[in-house]
Design a protein around this nucleic acid. Structure first.
Lengths: 219, 219
DNA sequence: CCGGATCCCCAGGGATACTG
DNA sequence: CAGTATCCCTGGGGATCCGG
């Protein structure tokens, strides 16, 4: 383990999670829960198998993840975050919030997974009208479906399809994400290729969290 | 610039700040304010000059830092954080808070700078008795002096020496930091080599922020 | 098909020396 | 003081191969 050799909590944190791919591995385990080797590899397009294997051992030795030889239907190893690993969520939240400012530039070759979109409304928005009844938004970006549920004053997301959504958003990731995080309005999102069917008013319930340098949409 | 090639705000953030030394450069600029090349190099023991030079250019191109050819008394270039760079403070706070759990293990060869200690009480503690009068704590760790000021309900720190401190803490960084962040009590800190002169009661005003997996000291 | 291990190659980064 | 230039080495990308 290469170290900065500094008695500073930031440097020591980076000694453990500062290597390439490490924080993205934590991201996948946070978003997907316990994962098989192949699940992780699918969620980390571009990673070399040997690197993933070595990193898993390092992170297990560092106490960030646990490896269990899983129950019969799966019959393979499952990797999960330990308590210390779960405690990295605020780091990923802060990084992801800061990184939103970089999401407007187009990079056509970027890969995309639904779980990368799903965390945005749960982490970076609040329900502006928590007293209103529960509602369900179906999101489809690049054929990857996800569901946003507003209930109990909170915002929850999961992968997959809803049975009877109140609002359906379909379009390229840039349009969907921009709309959900408030960096673009509905008309601009439509201009980016978004289609919205159902209760458009639900969009006003998604109030972006304050962020420096980004104009928040009014609720 | 090596990229992960993922349309995910965390991945895009790491595209910009995920390289080695980058976040520590931001740390120095956050803690020290505008810096000359040499100031940065001193605050980043172990960095190669060519790497620092190249990284400064990259970060300037990315819009994280600005470079000014400074006024006459200095007559050299000054590097400072831009608005986007300052917005990384929550990321460093989250990393530093998580990394506190790694600060109890001893690594004798680690280097140390006072500014790495100074951010801890300001970021990771609150004043448990904001109504009480202002107070000044002089901290000396490994001959590096810093000042902690409690006033207006907040905690502020700066490098250097105070004229008439209410409490003086002197000892190795592990003892001082452990005491200030609440991971060790006063007696344990004394056992680690700390000496405390003055109003010991001021220590109870430093209430550590909640953190998973770390026992907080009662206030 | 899953879960890796092995090998080769290249770029990012470390150490040192040198220059305006 | 503020970098630049050079050399070298290791970490990581890519492909292939192997055991269960």
């Amino acid at each position: 383990m290469r170290t900065y050799g500094q008695y500073c909590s930031i440097a020591r944190a980076l000694d453990v999670v500062g290597d390439r791919w490490t924080l993205l591995m934590v991201r996948e385990l946070l978003l997907q829960g316990p994962c098989r080797f192949t699940d992780l590899k699918k969620g980390l397009p571009g990673i070399a198998a040997n690197l993933l294997s070595a990193r898993l051992r390092e992170l297990e030795a560092a106490g960030l993840i646990t490896r269990e030889d899983a129950p019969p239907p799966v019959a393979t190893a499952l990797y999960a975050l330990s308590e210390d690993g779960l405690a990295l969520e605020p780091v990923l939240k802060a990084l992801g919030l800061w990184g939103l400012r970089l999401m407007t530039t187009e990079r056509p070759d970027d890969t995309f997974r639904a779980q990368w979109l799903a965390y945005a409304p749960a982490w970076f928005a609040t329900d502006a009208d928590p007293g209103a009844g529960p509602a369900v938004i179906q999101v489809v970006a690049s054929d990857e479906p996800a569901v946003i549920e507003l209930r109990d004053g909170g915002i929850h997301t999961r992968l997959g399809r809803a049975t009877d959504p109140d609002l359906v958003l379909d379009g390229p990731p840039r349009a969907v994400l921009g709309l959900l995080t408030g960096v673009v309005g509905l008309e601009a999102a439509v201009g980016l290729g978004l289609s919205a069917h159902g209760r458009h008013d639900l969009l006003t319930r998604l109030r972006p969290v304050a962020q420096d340098g980004t104009r928040a949409r009014g609720g």
